Simulated scan of single mutants.
Amino acid sequence: MPPAIRPLQVADLPAVAQLFDQYRQFYQQAPNIEAALRFMTERFERQESLVLVAQAPTGQLVGFCQMYPSFCSVEAAPIYTLYDLFVSPLAREVGTGRQLMQAAQARAAADGMVRMDLTTARTNLKAQSLYTSLGWGRDDVFLTFNRRVVGPERL
């Protein structure tokens, strides 16, 4: 039976923080469950992001995606930036990531967003394959730049 996709609830915060910590470790960050819980709790309490969770029939959370509302100045319209997508290794290869992505797209449409953006590591070929299979196009026109303005001790 596939997992149910639903919005994050306050009672989910400890479990989603565990998944978020694993997500960060995937991107070479040191484990820090306290910081992961603090970060996810702050986003939830301040309503700064939209988090969808995948809940297995057992009740266990097995994945999540987090989107941040933003705007596209060029289109003069609201967008979501899908910043985080993670599925527990035990729940991979059964369509959980696909379900989360489809639910995120449906929610973006319902919320009146004109577009969704995301970035992923160049080496994350499985994720790129999923995105392409769902109709996402790779941006070959614009380059992304970033610059650190505070030290890594923040999280």
Rank of each mutant, 00 (worst) to 15 (best):
33 I>T: 08
75 E>R: 14
144 T>I: 09
53 V>Q: 01
48 E>K: 10
127 A>I: 07
143 L>Y: 10
61 L>K: 02
49 S>Q: 09
26 F>T: 05
21 D>A: 11
146 N>C: 11
67 M>Q: 02
69 P>L: 11
146 N>M: 11
83 Y>C: 09
8 L>R: 03
5 I>R: 02
93 E>L: 07
96 T>P: 05
139 D>L: 11
128 Q>N: 07
141 V>D: 12
30 A>C: 02
71 F>M: 15
73 S>Q: 15
149 V>M: 13
110 A>Y: 04
43 R>S: 06
11 A>E: 10
44 F>Y: 14
18 Q>M: 14
56 A>I: 02
21 D>W: 12
131 Y>N: 08
58 T>Q: 09
101 M>F: 01
47 Q>L: 08
10 V>D: 07
117 D>K: 04
83 Y>G: 12
133 S>V: 05
127 A>F: 06
117 D>A: 04
75 E>G: 12
155 L>C: 02
54 A>V: 04
129 S>V: 01
3 P>H: 02
98 R>P: 00
45 E>D: 04
74 V>N: 08
131 Y>G: 02
72 C>F: 09
49 S>M: 08
142 F>V: 12
4 A>R: 14
134 L>W: 04
45 E>V: 03
18 Q>N: 13
52 L>G: 05
28 Q>S: 13
132 T>E: 15
45 E>S: 00
45 E>R: 08
82 L>E: 03
57 P>E: 11
110 A>I: 02
21 D>N: 15
37 L>G: 13
39 F>I: 07
28 Q>C: 10
25 Q>I: 04
66 Q>T: 15
149 V>A: 11
5 I>Y: 02
55 Q>S: 09
78 P>M: 03
100 L>E: 05
117 D>Y: 09
80 Y>E: 05
64 F>K: 00
29 Q>A: 14
76 A>C: 13
80 Y>V: 03
92 R>V: 03
98 R>N: 07
71 F>V: 14
83 Y>M: 08
126 K>P: 10
49 S>C: 14
111 D>T: 06
12 D>N: 04
119 T>G: 04
134 L>M: 07
7 P>G: 06
60 Q>I: 10
60 Q>G: 06
150 V>L: 13
147 R>C: 12
146 N>S: 14
2 P>S: 12
6 R>K: 13
29 Q>Y: 13
25 Q>S: 00
42 E>T: 10
119 T>H: 10
149 V>W: 13
3 P>T: 01
101 M>T: 01
40 M>G: 01
97 G>W: 06
26 F>A: 07
131 Y>Q: 06
120 T>N: 06
155 L>S: 10
26 F>E: 01
119 T>C: 06
90 L>M: 09
134 L>H: 00
123 T>D: 15
125 L>C: 03
14 P>D: 11
89 P>Y: 05
111 D>L: 03
45 E>Q: 12
5 I>S: 02
40 M>D: 02
30 A>Q: 15
104 A>V: 04
113 M>T: 00
64 F>H: 00
90 L>F: 00
124 N>K: 04
118 L>K: 03
26 F>P: 09
124 N>Q: 08
38 R>L: 13
18 Q>L: 15
29 Q>N: 14
25 Q>E: 05
126 K>D: 09
1 M>R: 14
115 R>V: 02
54 A>H: 06
82 L>W: 06
128 Q>V: 09
19 L>H: 02
35 A>G: 15
3 P>Y: 02
123 T>E: 15
35 A>F: 03
10 V>H: 07
84 D>E: 12
